[in-house]
Computed example of a mutant assay.
Amino acid sequence: MDFIGAYSWINIRFLLEGLWLTILVAAISIVFSFVIGGIIGVIRYMKIPYLSKIVGVITDIVRNLPLLLIIFFTYFALPKIGLRLDIFWSVVAAMTVFESAMLSEIIRGGLKAVPKGQMEAARSTGLTYMQALMSIVMPQALKKMIPPIVSQFISLIKDTSLAVVIALPEVTHNAKIIYGQDTAFVIPMFVAMAALYFIVCYVLSIISKRLEIRLG
């Protein structure tokens, strides 16, 4: 083991560049998946004839597929049908599809956890269904959804490491390059990766707890 050599400024900078890409992929995927997952979750909650069932079937299929398979599909299969994405956007697309399916269930579950009387009371005041859903039901559901949503986002950040299989230069990929140059760097690099992932995920968990307190 050579911690001093492994943690040279050049190697640390290379790792941080990978970490930045990891965070960027995760951040973009989180935004897209939250919007898409929210729409899907609301559609399933509203039980729109045919549409809700179709969306539900598709969501269940995606949720039961390995994320790695979806990454392979977006990078290797989509070009065969004329849709070519670079490595970065292939990973973002795969993450978004997978996380949207997962988040839609969390959002639907959160909406269902709000007592039906809340919707009925809101409708009795003259609000439309969508107004009652967005103004009355959704804010109450959001409080219940924050912990599982943040937990899912933390999983997403860790899952970005799967992109190493298609050579996305994220933190795991860059660490692999570093310890590939010298086997004495293997353990130091794994320690560094563990520390970086822990810091990012721990910060997210702290933010989650503060949001719970503020909204609670």
Score class of each variant (00 low, 15 high):
residue 23 I to S: 01
residue 148 P to S: 06
residue 88 F to S: 06
residue 118 Q to Y: 03
residue 22 T to N: 11
residue 109 G to F: 06
residue 12 I to G: 01
residue 152 Q to Y: 13
residue 71 I to P: 01
residue 26 A to W: 10
residue 64 N to E: 09
residue 147 P to E: 13
residue 183 T to C: 03
residue 160 T to C: 11
residue 187 I to A: 13
residue 93 A to G: 00
residue 190 F to G: 11
residue 139 P to S: 04
residue 135 S to G: 07
residue 10 I to K: 15
residue 52 S to E: 09
residue 46 M to G: 02
residue 62 V to F: 15
residue 50 Y to I: 14
residue 155 S to T: 03
residue 211 L to D: 05
residue 126 G to L: 05
residue 58 I to C: 03
residue 5 G to H: 11
residue 54 I to S: 07
residue 199 I to M: 13
residue 82 G to E: 08
residue 183 T to E: 15
residue 185 F to Q: 02
residue 29 S to P: 05
residue 61 I to D: 07
residue 136 I to W: 06
residue 120 E to Y: 08
residue 45 Y to M: 04
residue 173 H to C: 07
residue 106 I to H: 01
residue 195 A to G: 00
residue 158 K to S: 08
residue 177 I to K: 11
residue 111 L to C: 00
residue 167 A to S: 15
residue 132 A to Q: 08
residue 151 S to Y: 07
residue 114 V to Y: 00
residue 200 V to F: 08
residue 108 R to C: 09
residue 12 I to K: 00
residue 33 S to H: 01
residue 17 E to Y: 15
residue 99 E to Y: 15
residue 176 K to W: 14
residue 91 V to E: 10
residue 191 V to Y: 14
residue 68 L to I: 05
residue 60 D to S: 05
residue 203 V to G: 00
residue 72 F to C: 03
residue 10 I to V: 14
residue 83 L to Q: 04
residue 125 T to V: 09
residue 156 L to M: 13
residue 9 W to T: 12
residue 85 L to D: 12
residue 43 I to C: 00
residue 69 L to P: 01
residue 126 G to S: 06
residue 180 G to H: 10
residue 65 L to V: 07
residue 129 Y to Q: 13
residue 74 T to D: 01
residue 215 L to F: 15
residue 213 I to F: 09
residue 175 A to E: 04
residue 112 K to E: 15
residue 37 G to H: 13
residue 185 F to T: 07
residue 15 L to V: 05
residue 85 L to F: 15
residue 212 E to Y: 07
residue 90 S to Q: 04
residue 3 F to N: 01
residue 64 N to Q: 00
residue 79 P to V: 08
residue 156 L to R: 03
residue 40 I to M: 06
residue 117 G to A: 10
residue 195 A to W: 02
residue 163 A to N: 09
residue 156 L to I: 08
residue 195 A to Q: 00
residue 122 A to M: 06
residue 18 G to M: 11
residue 82 G to I: 04
residue 82 G to Y: 11
residue 95 M to A: 00
residue 87 I to P: 02
residue 153 F to Q: 10
residue 114 V to T: 01
residue 13 R to L: 15
